[in-house]
Amino acid sequence: MPVPYTLQLVDGDTKVPLADPIRGEFTDEDWEILSQYLRDAARLRETQLVRSSDPGTTRMEMLGDDTCTVTGLPTSAELSELLHNLRPFVLENERANFAKAKLVVGRREPHPALRSYLKDLRERFDGDRLRERFRFLVGKGPVDGVEPLELVKRGAVVNSDKFLKLWLNGYEYHRVPEMQREFEDLCGAMPFDMARAAFMFCLQDKTKAVLELANALGVMTEVARLERQAEGPPTDSP
């Protein structure tokens, strides 16, 4: 049975309403996806790296002699816990991954402010905002006009979803030989701590985007639940 809701968008600074309240409803399938997303997000919040206030405190510093120092990498146990709890959000075949939960809201709400908000979350999740701040490049020649370190056969952006997926599917979530070979071909000569640092930056942004969307969905589903309770039999809360 569809679950109705009302959403009021306000300006983050002035708290002035941006438009008339938005009214809509979640289908049963929508509700199940959002409920699962919120349950998975609750587990993600309980991971050690997130509970310690930030999903990683990795730092990378380039020195004057073109060398790099990396500090603050998580332990293997901490990283495994984070990756395990991020898995439902990043794997494409998961029913309530980040993209599908965002789509539930995006296709229901055409309001420009909400579309802009969801676009910002997607760009953070995909790493676009991270690459606006810096790009960790490796290769023999210039990449987009930037001269990277000469570490591998061809240029590539390490802090990208492509590299992250190669690492996850080649070594962490799966053990796909083809992806291991491609990963090693691209950055096999790179010190592994440097690669892990780049991936931690990606994971930090993914985690923040996942939890911020969960905060918004929590408000929307709670409003829907309360409205449903006021109208009739209570709806299970996510």
Rank of each mutant, 00 (worst) to 15 (best):
M1V: 12
P2Y: 05
P2M: 07
V3M: 11
L9Y: 00
L9R: 03
V10T: 15
D13T: 15
T14G: 01
V16A: 08
V16F: 06
P17G: 07
P21N: 07
R23C: 15
E29W: 04
L34E: 00
Q36F: 00
Y37C: 03
Y37H: 01
Y37M: 02
L38Q: 12
D40V: 14
A41R: 03
L44W: 01
L44D: 13
E46C: 07
L49H: 03
L49W: 08
D54V: 14
P55E: 05
E61Q: 13
L63G: 08
L63P: 13
L63C: 08
T67C: 04
T67V: 11
T67Q: 11
C68P: 14
T69A: 12
V70Q: 02
V70W: 01
V70T: 06
L73V: 01
P74N: 02
T75M: 04
S76V: 11
A77S: 12
E81S: 05
E81W: 02
L82Q: 01
N85W: 03
N85S: 07
L86I: 04
L86W: 00
E94P: 00
E94W: 00
E94H: 00
A99H: 02
K100H: 09
K102F: 03
L103S: 06
R107F: 03
A113M: 09
D120Q: 14
D120C: 13
L121C: 07
F125L: 13
D126S: 06
D126E: 10
D128H: 04
R129G: 06
R131C: 01
R133H: 02
F134L: 14
L137D: 08
V138F: 00
G139E: 00
G141W: 05
G141Y: 08
V143G: 10
V146G: 14
V146T: 15
L149T: 08
E150A: 15
G155F: 05
A156H: 09
V158W: 00
V158P: 01
S160M: 01
D161T: 12
K162C: 10
K165H: 02
K165S: 09
L168M: 07
N169V: 12
N169G: 02
E172T: 05
V176L: 10
V176F: 11
P177Q: 07
E182N: 14
F183T: 13
L186E: 15
C187H: 12
C187F: 09
G188T: 10
A189S: 14
A195C: 04
A197P: 11
F199D: 05
M200S: 10
M200Y: 03
M200C: 07
F201N: 01
C202I: 15
L203R: 03
D205G: 02
A209N: 04
V210Y: 10
L213S: 04
L217Y: 07
G218E: 08
V219D: 06
A224D: 05
E227T: 15
R228Y: 10
Q229P: 12
Q229M: 09
A230I: 14
E231T: 12
E231Q: 09
D236A: 05
S237H: 12
P238N: 11
